[in-house]
Design a protein around this nucleic acid. Structure first.
Length: 486
RNA sequence: GGCGCAUUCGUCUAGGGGUUUAGGACACCUCCCUCUCAAGGAGGAGAUCACCGGUUCGAAUCCGGUAUGCGCUACCA
């Protein structure tokens, strides 16, 4: 590689930042950072009809959340701007006009209605759909006449009728496409905006992009882009098509599969380091065993050659596992900070307690190794924050015990606990473990009764630590309530 | 329909002619630890490498065909 690496992430602002797109950005970013090259963020807002307000902001937010930064872009500028395609229309128009003049493109006056009819006819006759080239050889006069009628034309590329356009993809190797299977695609729409094909080629050249790293779905249109480079006299970049992310049904991952926005995953309580690592492993691998990698390790080890060819299903279970791993790696301070927004979102919980930093910090170690997501932390710790536990009295009854035995056990525990002045895990255990024996119960039986009384759940963090954090007052109150329920 | 591409445990993958009785991870099962749930540790089960032919002394690995899947086939990207 002699020329500097300049790659780009070029989303169209038509919606939320899809995890598939974000992964594309990530691969671009990894190559840029691995090679010391540049990542350019370019907004392809050429589809006026599908443009969504706020999409650019959401995309940037998604990228930033994962720590994917860019060296040039609409917000920070750069030497190759502007970075909104809507601000570069003149460039595309010039290119299109030049192609027309050279005889590589032409004006087409066909109405949408005619095109639709034409396509319907082709489908009916089981012919490959494509523009029938009606306007390809219009004379200047004929063009002028239509122009006079007020028809605003599109500019179409004059695709060679024969020959083939081969290209070498970094990942797929040689791909050969017969030109005869390509139709005369639109370069410039009648509203003056370029299509993806034209804008992409013009900008990638103008911005001196070295590698086009994009999803596999673009393979089929790459020959079109190559043909354009040729006609324009530009040197094409290297093409790197990576496999796509699939839903459980093996179709391209889309909204109907559930959460697809990277921001959804943030809101569900996945850590950015998890998402970064997990996404990097879809369609790319380092070796036969390394899976957990930091962003820096990924940068150091990334290589295009190790991107695979097969689409991969987004495996939520593995994501959950990995997020658990990353949650456990957090320091106490990091975990505390990470958990804040999720606790705040939990409206049922007592507001005052949630802002009691000392209390929250005491609770968190009890759930850190149990939570798969940050959102789950709120769920797992809820009983620490509420005034009133809400559970079914039947849960109190211990294993192989009846209501009377349970009542007796709980009462005995209450008596032992009441005089305790030190309410720490060791003191609690020192009192309660012998009590179980006294009552002729297994430790687990007594503990589980207490656990339900104090937490309202059958599964919770270790009992003594939990009680210690809750504090004597809260525990005694809850035991009192439980006794009344029996 | 046409064109392109792909196909290794349920899932993500390693492996690119003999080192493979196909390795790892998630999920699953068993056991250990244990006051529950997790976490952790030790095991287990799970893939005739889509199928059929060919090349070769030898193929998951090379070639051809078939099947299946996916993508593209817009004045969307």
């Amino acid at each position: 590689m002699t020329q500097p690496v300049r790659v780009r992430f070029a989303p169209s602002p038509t919606g939320y930042p899809h995890v598939g797109n974000i992964r594309t950005a990530m691969f671009n970013w990894l190559l840029a950072r691995h090679t010391g090259g540049k990542l350019i963020l370019r907004i392809e807002d050429t589809d006026v009809a599908r443009k969504v307000e706020g999409a650019v902001k959401a995309i940037m937010e998604g990228l930033s959340w994962l720590g994917i930064d860019w060296d040039e872009g609409p917000d920070i500028g750069g030497d190759y701007g502007p970075y909104y395609q809507s601000q570069r229309l003149e460039l595309y128009k010039e290119a299109a006009e030049r192609l027309v003049e050279q005889g590589d493109a032409y004006y087409c006056y066909c109405s949408p209605e005619r095109l639709e009819e034409m396509r319907a006819g082709q489908v009916k006759l089981k012919q490959p759909p494509g523009y029938d080239r009606l306007c390809r050889d219009l004379t200047r006069d004929e063009c002028a006449r239509r122009e006079a009628e007020g028809i605003r034309p599109v500019v179409r590329f004059k695709t060679p009728l024969d020959g083939q356009t081969p290209y070498d993809d970094v990942i797929w190797g040689r791909v050969v496409i017969e030109n005869s299977t390509l139709d005369d695609f639109v370069l410039l729409k009648s509203d003056g905006y370029p299509t993806y094909h034209l804008a992409n080629v013009v900008d990638d050249h103008a911005m001196e992009i070295s590698h086009v790293i994009r999803a596999e779905e673009w393979i089929s249109s790459t020959p079109r882009h190559l043909l354009l480079y040729q006609a324009l006299g530009f040197e094409p970049p290297l093409y790197v098509h990576h496999p796509m992310i699939l839903g459980p049904d093996r179709a391209k991952l889309s909204k109907r599969h559930g959460a697809v926005s990277i921001l959804d995953y943030r809101d569900m309580g996945y850590l950015p380091q998890t998402m970064f690592n997990f996404l990097s492993l879809i369609g790319w691998s380092l070796d036969d065993k390394t899976e957990l990698m930091t962003r820096q390790e990924l940068v150091d080890n990334f290589s295009l050659e190790r991107i695979g060819k097969t689409g991969a299903i987004f495996n939520r279970e593995k994501l959950d596992w990995m997020n658990g791993v990353y949650i456990r790696k957090l320091t106490a301070d990091e975990f505390f900070a990470a958990v804040q927004p999720y606790l705040m979102d939990d409206l049922d919980a007592g507001k005052a307690l949630i802002s009691d930093e000392e209390y929250v910090r005491a609770i968190l170690p009890l759930v850190q190794e149990r939570a798969k997501t940050l959102l789950e932390v709120a769920e797992l710790t809820r009983f620490f924050f509420v005034d009133q536990l809400d559970y079914d009295a039947g849960l109190l009854i211990g294993k192989n015990m009846d209501a009377a035995a349970t009542l007796k056990a709980l009462k005995a525990a209450q008596d032992k606990l009441t005089p305790l002045s030190i309410f720490d895990p060791d003191s609690l255990e020192a009192v309660l473990r012998p009590l179980a024996a006294e009552l002729g119960l297994k430790a687990g039986q007594l503990f589980s009764v207490l656990r339900v009384a104090v937490t309202g759940r059958v599964a919770a963090p270790p009992l003594f630590a939990t009680m210690a954090v809750l504090g004597k007052e809260r525990c005694m109150k809850r035991i009192e309530v439980a006794l009344k329920m029996l």
